[in-house]
Simulated assay, not measured.
Amino acid sequence: MAALTSLSFSTLTQCSKRKSTMTSTLGIRTHFSYHHNYVGVRPFNSTSKMVIQCMSSVTDIPSVSETKLSFLKAYKRPIPSIYNNVLQELIVQHHLMRYKTSYRYDPVFALGFVTIYDKLMEGYPSDEDRDAIFKAYINALKEDPQQYRIDAQKLEEWARAQNSTSLVEFSSKEGEVEGILKDVAERAGGKGEFSYSRFFAVGLFRLLELANATEPTILDKLCAVLNVNKRSVDRDLDVYRMLLSKLVQAKELLREYIDREKKKREERAEPQNANGAIAKCLGQQLSVL
């Protein structure tokens, strides 16, 4: 079972700078306050609807350990190590993204996280517990789990109705999701706060996947119109694919382990059942005598 507990999200990253930052940030309490979220009203063009982005201000930044403790307090039931190890690494990275000065929630980011979470928790013993863990996790980061789910579903439904061409031509169209993507493009282009992250990269990948946009050049075009660095996206998608591969292997090992233990229990139970049947039979014969 050692192989099952060694899976670590951070060990899959290829960016040593990020890892060193994470290590230095763990458990350190930040002793200053700031307002990094705001209410912004931005028209995309003269005829489009105005999109209002509302974010609550954060005046007391929790430490990583406080965020993890909030999660553990909200969900007190034990989580199998194959899931818990990755969740603990994930919440550390999510915390660091969440409390960056340039962070601003957006639905593509939410879609990326929801995609990673759902892939990680596939096969979890209880659907009810899986949902409860999700809520406890997002609440620990002082965000809205329902908003994550709603926005992710909204983008997924939109992407299913797209193709390779329409996906990258959102800037010439009107609509709620088109407005979201235009806002991302403007902020990433330097006209507002934007913080690129691995979750955002996975969100883009999910859009391509649902639109069945398999041509390699489509990701290049989508990154270009969104003003996002393609090399960063490629790097983070490689890490994501590696994570999925590791999870598949670990879950397969877990299934094999469970099957072996079940078989051992059954084998141990057979002699006991046989002895019980013999004793019962002898008891019946003695009672006749």
Rank of each mutant, 00 (worst) to 15 (best):
E267F: 07
S232I: 03
T25K: 01
S57P: 05
A159M: 10
T30Y: 09
Y196M: 07
F44T: 07
K173C: 08
I258G: 00
L167G: 01
P125G: 04
P125L: 05
G190L: 14
C223G: 01
Y103E: 03
R149H: 04
Y105S: 11
A74C: 06
D220T: 10
M50G: 05
V64Y: 02
L222R: 01
H36G: 02
G179A: 05
I52P: 03
W158Q: 03
L7G: 07
F109V: 09
T115Y: 04
T217N: 09
S287M: 08
N84Q: 11
H95K: 06
C281Q: 08
D151G: 05
R235A: 05
E89W: 08
K142P: 00
G40F: 04
R149D: 01
V41L: 14
M55C: 09
A188C: 09
V177Y: 09
C54A: 14
S126H: 09
A250R: 12
S70R: 15
E143I: 01
M121A: 03
A185N: 04
Y257I: 04
S16K: 12
E266H: 08
Q153T: 11
F170K: 04
R149P: 00
K119G: 03
T214A: 14
L208D: 00
L4E: 10
S195H: 13
S245R: 15
L141Q: 01
M121L: 12
I116V: 11
L289C: 10
